[in-house]
Write a protein that binds this DNA or RNA. Structure first.
Lengths: 194, 194
DNA sequence: AATTTTCGTTGATAATCATCAAGATGATGA
DNA sequence: TCATCATCTTGATGATTATCAACGAAAATT
């Protein structure tokens, strides 16, 4: 059950002691989220960080009644509505499961306790935050510099990682176009031989 | 000289001891950057984080020979080509000074030493990274969800903070349009009474 | 199996934005 | 002061993308 997440921690903190690990492990709770169910809804304050032990989730916002996808995350990654989690303000994003998903969750209060008791986890949190910063930086650059077509190409190149089960209308809002336009982008790329 | 940056550290780490602070202060070096000069050029590995003691800088990338502005930072903020600084890879962004600027710099190697000697700075780094993540998240959301006109309005609302001395062609690339189009956005807004 | 939704595609039209070219304005320096 | 250069504006045109509507295919439900 805790093998994946333990490896994840050890990859970031090679010197993590067994005592430190056990202290954290004891705070983890398992949550099963069925396909279509929510991990967090906008308006709620996000009280957990969740390690995806198995499954696949989507981040999205509701704007004028439309779902705008802002990210997709799979097994082995830590997720949260971080802005809400960190600021203790209501989230402006939703997370739902695109597949049946198993999460290992750590609550905000437990995390604060763990920080106090085992300062090594400040290093972990720093590295996770730095990694998230780099990730989102690249997305920001893509949104500012690349055309929707280039962003779609990026998706399918790196995206072999991602289950190809993301509906196109979700990809469309993620790259910043309408579903109709993504359909035309795909058509054009197919004609060019992709 | 070190008053501003000390306040900055104390605001994030209220419990910072004098010993801890002095250790860091002794690593700081002052760098004067004249208007138009570079703090970092793309292709270089960024070896410092810099606290802006006085002045005003711009982040930008060169794309097809054009300067695309990606951010503006003023007094009291920590800057760096973080992606490069953290990954030790060549930077893909430039930083230059829009005004004569005074920086207090901490080198990568000194920072690692400080981390080792005074673990409290892991907390500082964590909070800075978290803050950067929140900041860039908001920019990403703006790029994905808002129209250029809305992004410009955001700029001038929050942007009372920023010196109004940013040339419009820099603002244009920052919000993702051509200078010509920004000019038309401004005209349209003026007619609507802004 | 049949029905109902959901999803992806295609077409026609309109809005948004980029590009190119030409002036106008303002700052900078000889 | 005058000349020069950079910036901002405006106009004309074309490319990109959104919107609305219709259709077909696939998936879920009954």
């Amino acid at each position: 059950m805790y093998q994946n997440i333990k490896s994840f921690y050890r990859s970031i903190l090679p010197k993590l002691t067994e005592e430190e690990w056990v202290a954290l492990e004891e705070c983890l709770t398992v949550k099963q989220v069925k396909k279509g169910e929510f991990v967090i809804k906008q308006g709620e304050i996000c009280n957990h960080v969740s390690f995806i032990n198995k499954g696949f989730v989507r981040f999205f916002m509701l704007v004028d009644g439309k779902e705008i996808s802002t990210g997709f995350m799979m097994d082995g990654q830590y997720i949260s509505a971080y802005e809400s989690f960190l600021t203790r303000q209501p989230s402006n994003e939703n997370i739902d499961a695109l597949q049946n998903t198993e999460l290992l969750q750590l609550s905000y209060t437990d995390m604060q306790r763990i920080y106090e008791a085992y300062p090594v986890y400040h290093i972990f949190a720093r590295k996770v935050a730095e990694h998230l910063f780099i990730q989102i930086s690249q997305r920001t650059t893509a949104l500012q510099l690349l055309s929707p077509e280039q962003r779609y190409q990026n998706m399918i190149e790196k995206g072999s990682l991602l289950p190809q089960q993301i509906p196109q209308y979700m990809l469309a809002s993620y790259i910043g176009v309408t579903p109709e336009h993504l359909s035309r982008i795909r058509k054009k790329m197919a004609q060019k031989g992709y």
